[in-house]
Simulated assay, not measured.
Amino acid sequence: MLGIDVKKVDEDIIIRYQLTKLVIPVADIISVSLDDTYGGKETNAIRIGAPYGTTDRVAIQTKTNNYILFTTNYTKIMNTINSAIENN
């Protein structure tokens, strides 16, 4: 796996990147958006991926944490998460 992998499994979103695995309950997700800043607007966010200048940043806000995913495949990630939220 080269990049970030995002899948919906049961009622959770599973995010994998290298040796990292995050499990976020779909019910906890408040919003998903693109972040156009280099390092991310949220200073206390959990960052996943490599923050190169050409990568896009997907910001996930949950009830307890904020996450920033540095990816080149933001449409697939956002579609997966938004579809899970709509079907929840």
Rank of each mutant, 00 (worst) to 15 (best):
residue 14 I to G: 04
residue 14 I to V: 14
residue 14 I to E: 00
residue 16 R to H: 09
residue 16 R to S: 14
residue 16 R to W: 00
residue 17 Y to F: 15
residue 17 Y to L: 07
residue 17 Y to R: 09
residue 18 Q to P: 00
residue 18 Q to V: 11
residue 18 Q to G: 00
residue 19 L to Y: 13
residue 19 L to M: 08
residue 19 L to V: 11
residue 20 T to K: 15
residue 20 T to R: 12
residue 21 K to W: 03
residue 22 L to H: 12
residue 23 V to M: 12
residue 25 P to Y: 03
residue 25 P to I: 11
residue 26 V to I: 15
residue 27 A to R: 15
residue 27 A to E: 07
residue 29 I to P: 10
residue 29 I to F: 02
residue 30 I to A: 02
residue 30 I to C: 08
residue 31 S to Q: 11
residue 32 V to T: 14
residue 33 S to D: 12
residue 34 L to Q: 07
residue 37 T to Q: 09
residue 37 T to V: 10
residue 38 Y to P: 11
residue 39 G to K: 14
residue 39 G to D: 06
residue 39 G to C: 09
residue 40 G to Y: 00
residue 41 K to Y: 06
residue 41 K to V: 02
residue 41 K to S: 12
residue 42 E to S: 14
residue 43 T to Q: 14
residue 45 A to L: 05
residue 45 A to W: 05
residue 46 I to N: 06
residue 46 I to H: 03
residue 47 R to H: 01
residue 47 R to S: 03
residue 48 I to T: 09
residue 49 G to K: 02
residue 49 G to M: 00
residue 49 G to P: 14
residue 50 A to G: 13
residue 50 A to H: 13
residue 50 A to E: 13
residue 50 A to T: 15
residue 51 P to C: 06
residue 52 Y to H: 09
residue 53 G to E: 09
residue 53 G to S: 15
residue 54 T to N: 13
residue 54 T to A: 10
residue 54 T to L: 03
residue 54 T to G: 11
residue 55 T to N: 06
residue 55 T to G: 01
residue 56 D to L: 04
residue 57 R to K: 15
residue 58 V to R: 02
residue 59 A to W: 01
residue 59 A to K: 11
residue 60 I to E: 02
residue 61 Q to K: 14
residue 61 Q to C: 02
residue 61 Q to S: 13
residue 62 T to G: 05
residue 63 K to Y: 03
residue 63 K to P: 00
residue 63 K to C: 01
residue 63 K to H: 07
residue 65 N to E: 08
residue 65 N to V: 05
residue 66 N to M: 01
residue 66 N to C: 10
residue 67 Y to G: 11
residue 67 Y to L: 02
residue 68 I to G: 03
residue 69 L to N: 09
residue 69 L to V: 12
residue 69 L to D: 06
residue 70 F to P: 02
residue 70 F to Q: 02
residue 71 T to G: 14
residue 71 T to W: 03
residue 71 T to M: 08
residue 72 T to W: 05
residue 73 N to G: 14
residue 73 N to V: 10
residue 74 Y to R: 11
residue 74 Y to D: 13
residue 74 Y to N: 06
residue 75 T to K: 00
residue 75 T to I: 07
residue 75 T to H: 01
